[in-house]
Amino acid sequence: MKELSQEEWSEQLKEDKNAVILDVRTDEEVEEGYIPGAKIIDIYKGQEFVEEVEKLDKNKNYYIYCRSGKRSAQACTILDQMGYANTYNLQGGFMNWHGEVEGDD
Score class of each variant (00 low, 15 high):
residue 69 G to C: 01
residue 53 V to Q: 04
residue 52 E to T: 00
residue 72 S to E: 11
residue 13 L to T: 00
residue 56 L to G: 03
residue 19 A to T: 09
residue 60 K to M: 01
residue 9 W to M: 02
residue 80 D to M: 13
residue 62 Y to K: 07
residue 16 D to S: 01
residue 61 N to E: 02
residue 58 K to D: 00
residue 26 T to K: 04
residue 37 G to K: 08
residue 46 G to T: 11
residue 88 Y to F: 14
residue 67 R to C: 00
residue 60 K to D: 02
residue 71 R to I: 02
residue 49 F to L: 08
residue 30 V to G: 08
residue 37 G to R: 05
residue 71 R to K: 06
residue 53 V to L: 10
residue 6 Q to M: 10
residue 80 D to V: 10
residue 92 G to D: 11
residue 17 K to T: 07
residue 4 L to Y: 09
residue 9 W to I: 01
residue 42 D to E: 07
residue 27 D to I: 10
residue 85 A to V: 14
residue 24 V to F: 04
residue 54 E to M: 10
residue 74 Q to M: 12
residue 87 T to D: 15
residue 97 W to S: 04
residue 40 I to T: 14
residue 90 L to Y: 13
residue 64 I to T: 09
residue 97 W to V: 01
residue 7 E to D: 08
residue 29 E to A: 09
residue 9 W to C: 01
residue 94 F to L: 15
residue 30 V to L: 07
residue 21 I to L: 10
residue 83 G to R: 14
residue 29 E to P: 03
residue 92 G to W: 07
residue 3 E to H: 09
residue 66 C to P: 03
residue 41 I to K: 03
residue 43 I to Y: 05
residue 30 V to R: 06
residue 38 A to Q: 08
residue 46 G to M: 15
residue 96 N to E: 07
residue 87 T to M: 11
residue 35 I to D: 07
residue 23 D to L: 03
residue 51 E to W: 02
residue 12 Q to L: 06
residue 21 I to K: 01
residue 45 K to N: 14
residue 103 G to R: 05
residue 25 R to M: 11
residue 100 E to N: 07
residue 60 K to E: 00
residue 38 A to G: 08
residue 37 G to Y: 11
residue 26 T to S: 13
residue 54 E to I: 05
residue 100 E to K: 10
residue 58 K to F: 01
residue 5 S to P: 02
residue 13 L to I: 02
residue 45 K to Y: 05
residue 92 G to C: 11
residue 11 E to A: 12
residue 75 A to V: 08
residue 57 D to V: 05
residue 29 E to T: 10
residue 82 M to W: 10
residue 40 I to L: 10
residue 23 D to T: 03
residue 6 Q to Y: 03
residue 36 P to H: 12
residue 61 N to V: 03
residue 35 I to C: 10
residue 75 A to Y: 07
residue 70 K to L: 05
residue 61 N to D: 04
residue 42 D to P: 10
residue 105 D to L: 06
residue 7 E to C: 01
residue 66 C to T: 05
residue 48 E to M: 08
residue 96 N to S: 09
residue 88 Y to N: 12
residue 19 A to W: 02
residue 102 E to M: 03
residue 102 E to V: 03
residue 104 D to M: 04
residue 42 D to W: 09
residue 27 D to K: 15
residue 78 I to K: 13
residue 33 G to T: 09
residue 91 Q to W: 09
residue 93 G to I: 09
residue 68 S to M: 07
residue 19 A to D: 09
residue 83 G to L: 14
residue 28 E to P: 06
residue 100 E to Q: 06
residue 4 L to V: 12
residue 95 M to T: 13
residue 102 E to D: 04
residue 36 P to T: 07
residue 100 E to G: 00
residue 93 G to A: 14
residue 95 M to H: 06
residue 10 S to P: 00
residue 90 L to I: 13
residue 31 E to G: 14
residue 16 D to R: 05
residue 93 G to D: 09
residue 73 A to P: 04
residue 69 G to N: 05
residue 23 D to C: 02
residue 33 G to D: 13
residue 35 I to L: 11
residue 24 V to Q: 03
residue 40 I to R: 13
residue 50 V to C: 06
residue 91 Q to G: 12
residue 53 V to E: 10
residue 62 Y to E: 00
residue 46 G to P: 08
residue 12 Q to T: 05
residue 8 E to D: 08
residue 25 R to C: 03
residue 66 C to E: 03
residue 27 D to P: 13
residue 13 L to E: 04
residue 6 Q to R: 11
residue 64 I to S: 00
residue 38 A to M: 12
residue 31 E to R: 15
residue 82 M to D: 07
residue 49 F to V: 10
residue 29 E to N: 10
residue 40 I to N: 12
residue 91 Q to S: 13
residue 26 T to Y: 11
